[in-house]
Structures are given as structure tokens and as C-alpha cells.
Design a protein around this nucleic acid. Structure first.
Lengths: 211, 211
DNA sequence: CATATTTTTGACCTATTGGTTAATTCATTT
DNA sequence: AAATGAATTAACCAATAGGTCAAAAATATG
């Protein structure tokens, strides 16, 4: 029995976890309700008892995973440290986060690309512009010192985020040219090294920017 | 009638083009043979007459698109200019290329991620390591001048490629935080500016690298 | 303990999907 | 123009997919 009407039942949780795994691995179109039911160890009809349809089950999963990703990024960017420190903190923590959720980037990127409307919920939650402006205001002096104008922020932020996200999303593509990347240990090492490489790379570039 | 057994018939081409569009837009799982037939203006049975199965049709399309992407990158990297010039050339030309094929990155990234085996063909064609080593040999002096060791090449190359590819693959995700990116004109401008921003960013970082 | 409520199941339904087939149309050759 | 082979079609097929339903278990309630 649900304790307060919001508490997830054990079964509901089992379903949700199985669905997360399957959707993340195969995407919305590739996922099968039967497979999710099997993985959750329950009947397929029970899936529809807890979540009416594939769409609704998917949306429940997607919202949580998308939020998980964004909250991680936002939390780090909101920290009360210098921008310089923030870059290192971001690459360190975000790569740690992604190494625990390596399939998350390509899943989110693909699903939202194939059907942008599924993100409207989060889009409304985040007052847009907020992040970029907040970040610039917070570090205005430091950033101006680097020759970064407010209008440069989108370019800079996309660059920073791509440093951690892209290698996970593109791992198999990268492996075409560098097969050693197929080895989990090697890839892990590559990403560990990337924390420092990318941090240095970005800060180096900023430090010596021509204004 | 086929002129030499290799020449594509008009119908075959129509099918191939329609299939490219649909697959690129919806992915393998999301694509429907009927929709491809409709777009090609032919009967569904004719699809199977020219390409036996969905798998084979997909593979034909995928191979061409993957090759298209790789050849573009390889050609630029193979140019006989300094590494510095190469960075600018790459970002200029590759962004031009992707602006004509904006859905290509997420399509390739997702399909290969969901089913890595589909790329084995290309993987065998490219002698792996070749590119990275060739590139380093060609610019050994210049790169050492920047403090780039051979072992840094993977990090550097992933960084450079992500500069152009990531914004296209992540456009809808970026738009969650920066809704102006939904506007095609704005996004186009963003990517035009990115040619210079990214080039400067990379070269700046390299120029002042601590060795 | 009996009754009401919730959870779980197996069996079933319908629509969709990739794929096949046999017949027809079209073009080429002699 | 008859014959031959390739291109094209409509109709069909079997498997799979998401989804439903009524009955059975399990659990809570008075």
C-alpha cells in the first residue's frame, strides 16, 4: 500500500528501473514493452497497470533522466568558486558522472533530436537565459579579464560541455579511427586524462586570449 | 537498362534518396518501409525488389553516409598545409559541410552507438592508427613546438572534431538552455561565428601551452 | 472471518510491419 | 509483331507490437 499516494511501490520502481535500462540502451523506437516486463520480472499487463502506455512510461523515464543530466550540470555551474576553478570542477565531476552513465548522452541527444517536444516540460521549468546570464554576472570581472564578452558565453559554454559529453556520445565513432577506445579500461583512462587535458586546454586558451 | 551493371537505375536512385532522408530523420527503428516507398513514389514491393530487406536498404544508405562524413574529415586533414592552417580549414569546411547535412551527426552517432557492428566495413578499410600517426608525423615539428606529444593526439583530435560536430548533434539540447538556437537563422549565425571562435580558441590554447 | 480493494496474471484483440507472390505492364530483341 | 526478360503493382501473409479484459491472488479493512 502506498504510504502517501506519492511513494513509489516496489513494483513500480522495478518497472521504472527496467524501463530506464531498456530505453537508455535501445531508445524509444527500439525498446519493446515485453522486454521491459521481462527485465522487471513481471507480466506485460502490469506495465500498463502502472503506466498506461509506452508513451507515458517513456516520458516518465525520459523526464527523470533529462533532469538528472541537467541538475548535475547546473549544480556544478552554480558553485560558489572562481570561473577558473569551476572549469576544473566541472570536467572532474561531470566526467565522473558520465562514466557512471555512459549511455546517457547519446540517449538524451538522440531522443530529443528525434522528438524535440518531449523536452518542453524542462524547458518551461528552466527560465531560459537564466543560466547563461547568471553565470556571466557571477564571473563578469574574471571573464572580462579573459576577454570574454557576454555574447561569447554561448560559444564558450557549448565548448566546455562538449569536452565531457562528446566523447561518450561519439565513443563508437571515435573507435573507428582509434580502436583502442573499444577497450573499457583504455577508454576510462582516456577520460580520466581528459579531465586535466580539457581543463588545461580551456584555461590556457582563455588566459592568453587576445581581447 | 543499366549501362554497365553498376549504373544505378533511376528508380534505384529514387529509392535510395528517399531512404536516406527517412533513415536520417527517423533512424533505423523509427523508419517505415511504407513511408520510404511513398516518398520515392513507388510501390512497397519495389523496395524489396531493389533492396531485399530493410536491413540491406539501411546498410546501403548507412555505408554511404558514414563514408561521406569520414571522407570529408580525412580529406581536410590530409591537406598539405601547416597544422595551424589545417585547424582553420577544418572548422571552416567541416561546418560548411555539416550545415548542409545537419542531421547527419546525430544519425551516425546514434546508429553506430546502438549497433556498433554496422561500421565494421569502414573500420577494415581504414587501417586504424594511420590517421593519427600520419597526422602527427606530418606535423611533428610544429606540434612538438606546441608541446603536443604523440600521446596527446587522441585528446586533441577528439577536441577539434567535437567543436564542429557537437553543436549539430546537441542542437535541441542546447536549445533547452538557449531557445534562440531553435531559430534556423540564429543557429546558422552561431555556427558561422563558431568557425572563428573555435579556431582561435584551439590555436590560442596550443600557442601558449606549457610543455 | 468475511468483505472490499488492490495487485497480478494469462489469454486475447487489433493494428502495424516487414516481407512475399503471382499477375501485369513495359521495354528490348529478333 | 511475337517472344523474352525486366520493372511494377495489388493483394496477401505471418509475425510482432502495443494494449485490453476478466478472472485470480494477494492484501487490507471492519
Amino acid at each position: 500500500m502506498a504510504k502517501a499516494g506519492v511513494t513509489d511501490s516496489q513494483t513500480r520502481l522495478k518497472i521504472f528501473r527496467a524501463a530506464s535500462d531498456i530505453f537508455e540502451e535501445k531508445g524509444y523506437e527500439g525498446a519493446r514493452m515485453q522486454e521491459i516486463a521481462d527485465k522487471a520480472g513481471i507480466n506485460k499487463a502490469l506495465l500498463h497497470y502502472y503506466f498506461r502506455s509506452k508513451d507515458q512510461l517513456f516520458m516518465a523515464v525520459f523526464q527523470v533522466l533529462l533532469k538528472k543530466m541537467f541538475e548535475k550540470i547546473m549544480t556544478i555551474f552554480a558553485a560558489d568558486i572562481t570561473f577558473k576553478e569551476k572549469i576544473r570542477l566541472f570536467l572532474g565531476q561531470h566526467i565522473d558522472f558520465l562514466s557512471k552513465n555512459p549511455k546517457l548522452p547519446i540517449f538524451l541527444l538522440n531522443e530529443i533530436s528525434k522528438n524535440p517536444s518531449i523536452a518542453t516540460g524542462l524547458k518551461e521549468t528552466l527560465q531560459y537565459g537564466e543560466m547563461r546570464d547568471l553565470l556571466y554576472m557571477k564571473h563578469a570581472k574574471e571573464l572580462r579579464g579573459y576577454g570574454i564578452k557576454k555574447s561569447d558565453m554561448p560559444q564558450l559554454m557549448v565548448t566546455v560541455v562538449s569536452m565531457s559529453v562528446f566523447p561518450y556520445a561519439a565513443r563508437e565513432m571515435i573507435a573507428i579511427m582509434m580502436p583502442q577506445m573499444l577497450d573499457n579500461k583504455r577508454f576510462k583512462t582516456f577520460m580520466e586524462e581528459r579531465k586535466e587535458f580539457a581543463s588545461d586546454f580551456i584555461l590556457n586558451s582563455l588566459k592568453h586570449r587576445k581581447k
